[in-house]
Amino acid sequence: MKIIIRVSLLLVALLAVSLLLYGSYRVWVTWRVFSPREVTAVDDWPYAIKEVLNKLGDKAVQRTEAYKVGGFTDQQFFWLIELVDPTRSAEVCSALEVTQTKPSSFLTAAIHNSSKPSWWSPDLGEETQYYLSDGFDLSTRGADGEHFLVLVENDTGRIFVWQKSNF
């Protein structure tokens, strides 16, 4: 009888330790995968930004930033690309296959209300041009695939990209 009680207590203790370890791991994974954060390692940047930067070349870009928001399957990224020569912004828009659109109050509100980093603050004045990919939906998740909203500040050479990567 004593052996059965000891074995039962040992099993309960092992189960409790396992649950604690699993819970800690689950919290860590949830924080690591789902929390918004700067993407500092270039290898972790989305494929699209790496392709754009490769096409532009090293000497064309002054600064780049990337920020990830999202979960396990659907993710959103905010990028900032500062060009040395602002006239090369057309190359970025061409690579992302976006078309120019007119600004609207709904579009402006969506930009201000998104979970963006502090450095992602485009000037929404008259000099800024707005571009959208066909599948970019401001009000819902949108269709599967890569979708982009691009804001180009022609006077500063700054390009702000909001990317939705839906699985």
Rank of each mutant, 00 (worst) to 15 (best):
Q100E: 14
K2T: 15
V92W: 01
I81C: 08
L15Y: 08
L11V: 13
R26Q: 11
D134K: 14
S115W: 00
V39N: 00
D137S: 12
E127G: 15
G23D: 02
A90S: 12
L149Y: 04
L9P: 04
Y25S: 03
I81W: 07
R26P: 00
T108Y: 06
M1E: 12
G70S: 02
D137M: 10
L80Q: 09
V98T: 14
G157T: 13
D137I: 10
R63C: 06
I159C: 00
R88P: 01
W120K: 05
T128M: 04
L80K: 03
K164C: 00
S121C: 10
L149S: 11
H147W: 14
S24Y: 13
Y25P: 00
N154I: 00
P103N: 13
Y130A: 11
Q62F: 12
W45A: 10
E91A: 09
D144M: 11
L149H: 02
S118P: 05
K55W: 12
A110V: 07
L107F: 09
C93V: 15
G142C: 08
N166K: 07
W79V: 02
A110E: 08
L151R: 02
V98S: 05
R37H: 14
T101S: 11
T99N: 12
F160D: 01
T30M: 08
G145A: 11
S18I: 00
L19V: 05
W31L: 12
S114Y: 07
E153L: 09
I5R: 06
Q129I: 07
V39A: 01
S114K: 12
Q163H: 14
V39Y: 02
D144P: 04
W120V: 08
Q62A: 07
